Computed example of a mutant assay.
Amino acid sequence: MNQIHSHSQDLQATLNAIAEQLQALAADHQDNPQQLLAILRTLEKTHQEIRDRWFQHALPDNRQDFYTLLQDIEANGGWPYIERMRLQALLARLENNPLDPD
């Protein structure tokens, strides 16, 4: 049990380090929407690849294990989802803050 807990802590430490790197990368490009969009697209693509390549294949094949997974999902923040900015929200922002004509 301690080994599982240790692996979980190692994984969380690695994920935290990756998250910090992503935050720093985004901060470095905070004034460039094209670069930030590239970062978001990469995150979304990575999310899809992990889900389709590994996660779906790792799903439990019996009810007890599946129920345990569902309990974990519910207890630890729900289903991972990457929300896309709606085009209407983007257009509304432009209406409220029109670009200065040069």
Rank of each mutant, 00 (worst) to 15 (best):
A19Q: 06
Q9L: 08
Q30R: 09
A89V: 10
L25R: 12
A92H: 10
I73L: 15
D28Q: 12
I4G: 00
P98V: 01
Y81D: 15
A58Q: 14
Q30L: 03
H57T: 11
Y67N: 13
R93D: 04
L91C: 06
E95H: 09
N97H: 14
F55P: 01
Q3L: 05
W54R: 10
P33T: 01
L91Q: 15
P33L: 05
L11K: 02
T46M: 09
P98E: 02
Y67E: 10
L15F: 05
E49V: 15
A27S: 12
R53T: 14
R93L: 01
L59A: 07
A38N: 10
Q23T: 07
Y67M: 08
L43G: 08
I50E: 06
N32A: 04
D52R: 09
A92P: 00
N76S: 08
R93Q: 04
E95M: 11
E95D: 12
H57Y: 07
L11N: 03
Q34I: 05
E49L: 15
L90A: 10
L91M: 13
A38P: 01
L99A: 14
Q3T: 05
A13Y: 00
D72P: 01
Q88L: 09
L87K: 09
G77D: 03
L90T: 03
A92W: 05
I4M: 06
D65T: 11
D10K: 06
Y67F: 05
R53H: 12
D100C: 02
L70Y: 15
D52V: 03
A13T: 05
P101H: 06
D28A: 13
N76M: 04
H29L: 08
H47S: 12
N62S: 07
L91A: 11
L99K: 10
E83W: 08
D72G: 14
L99T: 12
A13M: 01
Y67C: 04
E20A: 14
H29R: 09
I18A: 12
P101F: 07
H7P: 00
T14C: 04
L91P: 02
R63N: 13
L90H: 02
D31M: 01
Q34Y: 03
Y67V: 07
L91N: 11
A13F: 00
L15Y: 08
